[in-house]
Design a protein around this nucleic acid. Structure first.
Lengths: 155, 155
DNA sequence: CTTGTGTGGTTGCATTATAAAACCATCTGC
DNA sequence: GCAGATGGTTTTATAATGCAACCACACAAG
């Protein structure tokens, strides 16, 4: 087989995430969905992508439990694509991508929008990683540990 | 042209990030680089990917300023690929991807490792988004604002 | 009921990206 | 200088992507 390698079954959680949303368009579709887009035509218009590709991606996102198809909403007989909790859970990923661009992009002046605190209108802080006890952690202060054995039948 | 659409020049910072690291392999290469891998063969062995693809990806990452080629390190006349600050800045993205998988994966028992606080050995908390004044923010408490006009020649 | 229009796709075909394997150049040890 | 390891490039085949054309259905007007 010469097909694109799949990360399904890989034990690395990063690879597993990429398997679901690691392609060219999925995260942008999710971005628009977080913004409230729901209809096929809305996505197609906003993203300017080919309809067949959009079709395939939407199906894939539904298969991965990120979107779900709702029968209707405004009376029309068409269906809509709405985010599941899993889909909404990608928000930190999008924020991290956004902040990386804001911090390191070679042409930051071309970035059109800033993510702000709705209440104060001020930019949000960089994502913070904290220990269980609340200490702020740098990458160097973390490490990977083998997953603890799953406790059996003890709820 | 029928080539893959490029997000270069797009005003959305998420699209701009994806332009650099939004493909199948780049984030995994970066993941290994964060782990300390530096040599072509190390990447190739660890990731099990085709050498030509690795070659293309490494070049692309270097072009995007995420990796840089260091002339040597252990005396051998080969070059190494090391992360730039921009490259190390992707850490939160990888953490976000990891945590998303940990929280929503259909088969979490297949995930091999946990990211822990090095000092205590306890899992790190979920990434937190905070306002300038320290308030913890949910997605709904944020919004996008047009980028403030760049102040000209005022330092 | 027939025609027209908009939405939501699918199909066909050309182009590009990805993958495996073979190949090649350079370095390293001897 | 020869054998093997390292670090790639080239070749060739398959899969993914993108555009355009097409089709199905709903709805509205005439």
């Amino acid at each position: 087989m010469v097909k694109r390698t799949s990360f399904e079954g890989d034990s690395c959680p990063i690879a597993r995430s990429l398997e679901a949303i690691g392609d060219w368009w999925s995260l942008l579709i999710i971005r628009e969905a977080l913004f409230g887009l729901r209809r096929f035509g809305e996505f197609q218009n906003k993203l300017g992508m080919a309809k067949n590709i959009l079709s395939v991606r939407l199906r894939s996102l539904v298969d991965h439990g990120i979107l779900t198809t709702a029968p209707a909403s405004d009376g029309s007989a068409y269906q809509e694509y709405v985010l599941t909790p899993k889909g909404r859970g990608t928000f930190p990923i999008l924020v991290a991508l956004r902040q990386w661009s804001e911090e390191f992009d070679d042409h930051p002046e071309e970035i059109a929008t800033v993510l702000v605190d709705r209440e104060k209108g001020r930019p949000v802080k960089k994502l913070e990683m904290r220990a269980e006890d609340g200490r702020l952690l740098s990458p160097a202060e973390t490490m990977l540990k083998p997953r603890p054995a799953p406790r059996r039948r003890s709820a």
